[in-house]
Write a protein that binds this DNA or RNA. Sequence first.
RNA 1: UGCCCGAUAGUAUAAUGGUAGUACGACAGAUUUUGGUUCUGUUUGUCUAGGUUCGAAUCCUGGUCGGGCAACCA
Length: 555
Amino acid sequence: MSEERSLNFLEQIVEEDIAKGVNGGRVLTRFPPEPNGYLHIGHAKSICLNFGLAQKYGGQTNLRFDDTNPVTEDTEYVDSIKEDIQWLGFQWAKELYASDYFEQLYQYAVELIKKGFAYVDDSSAAEIAALKGTPTEPGKDSPYRTRSVEENLQLFADMRAGKYPDGAKTLRAKIDMASPNMHMRDPIMYRIKHAHHHRTGDAWSIYPMYDFAHGQSDSIENITHSICTLEFIPHRPLYDWFIQQLDIFPSHQYEFARLNLSYTVMSKRKLLQLVNEGIVRGWDDPRMPTIAAFRRRGYTPSSIRTFAERVGIQKRDNIIELGLLEYCIREELNKTAPRVMAVLDPIKLVITSYPEGQTEELQAENNPEDAAAGHRNVTFSNTLWIEREDFMENPPKKFFRLGVGLKVRLKYAYIVECTGFDKDENGNVTTVYATHIPESKSGAEGSAMSVKGTIHWLSAAHAQTAEVRLYDRLFTVENPAGAEGDFKDLINPNSLEIIEKAHIEPFLADAKPGERFQFLRKGYFVADTESTTGKPVFNRTVTLKDTWAKEAKKA
RNA sequence: UGCCCGAUAGUAUAAUGGUAGUACGACAGAUUUUGGUUCUGUUUGUCUAGGUUCGAAUCCUGGUCGGGCAACCA
């Protein structure tokens, strides 16, 4: 299956580099998360890109944690990130940490001081900001910019030794306060933080800024293609500057547009807020756009990889329609998920012509898309559960389900004709009555007779119950991040609907967490991580396409 | 009023100086014991104004629009 696909711009760069013999044709990429949150679907795109590129061109990929800010980072995040990458189906060559390079980075800083390219600044954060200028106005030199090399060396050593409180001093690169690129206006290389680091403990009282760690970390690892998102484009000249002054391996950075998905947010800060404020039930709440959430929701690794492939790689900003992701998981689950019957919003259907107490076992197909999936038995009786929405008191013309006088096929069973119904004091339909056509039994000759609709059902006396969680989009607008005001005001109040007692086929009560099914006509579902034999819980991964719902909405 | 990045159907993404194609969506139809799947068909696009060229989505110039950059965050 060698489908002809054109190369994305990064693949073109890599192929050109290989052709030209750059780095001896070697390809080494890296995925560099900061361990300060869970990975989301946008990271999945980056993971697929970095690992996929290396795989395609015979290279490897490192996992490097850019852990330069101890106050936001935690090993919980390290563990979740590793789990998510492996779940997606990728394996890194080396597990590395920017914190592994702290001593090396310190030596680089000393070297830059000696070369006159860095100085210790006593200015406060506010003073630094004031002298920084603005995008349209040049900045001004700090009064500490002309300190001698010896003094800088001594002060920097004292910073490391912990002689100064947080914020008292910084080490800055001496570049150009008038540069049109703000990142070149004497950027801070080191700041004082008397903070406990998740790996280096209390060994350091100074920590490098990301900008002083990232490029050199790539260089130290001999990364050939350092791929990141668009917002780091203006940082690239700075990374190149450090590499040049230090005369170390010239790793090159390339930037692509990050993934945005409609009806959700992708910033770790906002996701953390949703978690901390209890708006969702945690990082892996199936409504979240995190990889952990998609896993719990029933998405497969391959569906996410396919999605990442289909969204493409480019440099223009984009918002991908949620529908594409849903298409990717439906496409896979249609082929693989066993079909079962579950009634989520039940009303009773009594077959008055079928003897009370009688039952029979009917053969049900496990998957029409997969002949090897085989068959199972379902129990039929005269009292069934059917979906409330499959009956209408006053059905419109194109309603192919139950209404008095209408015929419908009960999947795998008989064709029945509706004869009447009961309502309770609130006017809600409670029971529907019908007679069956004995010769229309599925498999029998008479089953060939045509009816427009087929509905699913469960024998009331035999069905088990389960909790079913129905998820919908987390936000009410396509681009909540781009809207004015507080993004939390745009949360969809109906993003989670819990059905305490849905009816399911008996064998489903034993479903193991992670097992996926198609609930016939209702969607794809997965047994939740909290699911137990005593109390099964199913998450709806995605609905089926529903052209009737669309039709009904029009009317 | 600085610097940087970008602009192709509704959403994405190809075409790398030579017929604007693909996917998802939408719409219509066929098939169907899931109003699912599958199949067929239809619809919709090169931001703009110049220039170079036999020929421009592609190269050049100006403009417009969108995004990024002024954390001791990454």
